[in-house]
Design a binder for these strands. Structure first.
Length: 383
DNA sequence: TCTGGGGTCCTAGGACCC
DNA sequence: TCTGGGGTCCTAGGACCC
């Protein structure tokens, strides 16, 4: 089973602001460059959708209510949602803040009227939390995910393997999970307009476009996708923050103070989550929307603000950006848990350590060269 | 007045090691 | 004469998802 909350952020806001109920509303930052994060169904009637600039949404609907993101609220409701779902089966894989996969094999074993049972799950959630959801039931995670997407809001869709040709194959290629706005046109170019066309298309060309994903893709649409619900939550692999400037800028001081702010955020989060990392990546988006990044990996993991800031600043300066930039971001990567590394090194200790590491590299290099020379002389002698 | 911010995974080239 | 083959790690960019 895949369960997905409908217009989650927007619904969450009407839960704590009942006065907004029934009015067109979006969640998003109301700045010059704000975009719609989530639109409720009333707003969608005006053609408003996620990722649309706020100013454009307001043009479509002047009376639009715009509410800023309140992640603490969404997290609380999200947890209520997962707790509720867990009461039906403990085998639950959290896929994002508003969706999860649940292994319902045991739960549904002796249920005669499955449709009715699923309605009870759905109605129960609504009664308890006022959250609306769509449910998909299928033999694999991919099919369940596609199923939950078919009817919104408050939809229930069941797909059996034998239904794949009539329920999945006629869908437009864009609607397939994993095919986005770059790949879809390339697929349409070689005559793939519907999901079912993937099977009859030129497989050589298709492999070339999809790469490794080709094999996953074929398994998915033939009902051989994974049905393993992974309960264990995975450790985060990176922690990063980025901001878009109100206006593009090449003012060094302005950029530097933003960088400092972002480093503070990253350090705070890394410390809260007790994660240390070895790599800092600085990302920049120029006014033409091109994204540039530079990263450095250090021999020892860290998470102090001083380290992050020092390295991020050096990295930014090495990027030689002259044109005005739109966005800047800092990410700490290659994370590991802090209890794996006992003590927090100071910047001073760290520099000592780095010098040692460099020296080691030089010695290794010398050794290698000596070996090479010995080998060379030996073979010369032999000759 | 154009177009956010948090992530994950993949690809491809290069350095380096054995 | 002229250049192997396996592997890992790092780096930069890109696609995709919510």
């Amino acid at each position: 089973m895949h369960i997905d909350l409908n217009a989650f952020f927007a619904t969450a806001e009407t839960i704590i602001h009942p006065e907004y109920k029934g009015h067109p509303l979006v969640v998003g930052r109301e700045g010059r460059r704000g975009i719609v994060s989530t639109a409720n169904y009333e707003a969608r009637k005006f053609g408003i959708h996620s990722a649309m600039p706020i100013y454009m949404a307001k043009e479509l609907c002047p009376s639009l209510i715009v509410v800023p993101c309140n992640f603490a609220l969404y997290e609380r409701l999200s947890n209520e949602f997962f707790n509720y779902v867990s009461s039906y089966s403990p085998i639950i894989q959290i896929a994002s803040i508003d969706e999860c996969y649940v292994d319902m094999t045991e739960t549904l074993k002796n249920i005669k009227d499955i449709d009715n049972y699923l309605h009870k799950i759905q109605d129960g959630l609504f009664e308890k939390t006022k959250l609306q959801c769509s449910i998909g039931i299928a033999p694999t995670k991919f099919l369940a995910k596609m199923a939950s997407d078919m009817k919104k809001p408050m939809g229930i869709t069941i797909i059996r393997r034998k239904d794949i040709p009539k329920m999945i194959y006629p869908l437009p290629i864009e609607s397939m999970f994993g095919i986005g706005k770059k790949t879809a046109p390339r697929l349409r170019n070689i005559g793939i307009n519907k999901i079912g066309d993937l099977k009859t298309a030129n497989q050589i060309e298709l492999k070339h476009i999809l790469g490794k994903f080709y094999f996953t893709c074929m398994d998915w649409i033939e009902g051989r996708g994974s049905d393993v619900v992974e309960v264990e939550e995975t450790d985060p692999k990176s922690i990063g923050n980025s901001r878009t400037f109100e206006n593009n800028t090449n003012n060094y001081e302005e950029i530097k103070s933003m960088l400092t702010y972002l480093c503070k955020l990253v350090a705070k989060r890394a410390n809260e989550e007790e994660k240390v990392g070895t790599t800092i990546q600085v990302t920049i988006k120029t006014s033409d929307f091109k994204v540039h990044s530079k990263s450095v990996t250090k021999p020892k993991a860290f998470n102090s603000y001083e380290m992050i800031h020092e390295i991020a600043l050096q990295t930014f300066e090495r990027m030689n950006i002259n044109e005005p930039i739109r966005l800047i971001g800092v990410t700490l990567q290659n994370l590991e848990s802090r209890h794996d590394q006992k003590l927090q090194m100071s910047l001073f200790d760290y520099q000592i350590h780095e010098e040692e590491a460099k020296t080691k590299l030089i010695i290794n290099d010398l050794n290698r060269k000596m070996k090479k020379n010995v080998f060379k002389r030996a073979s010369e002698a032999k000759r």
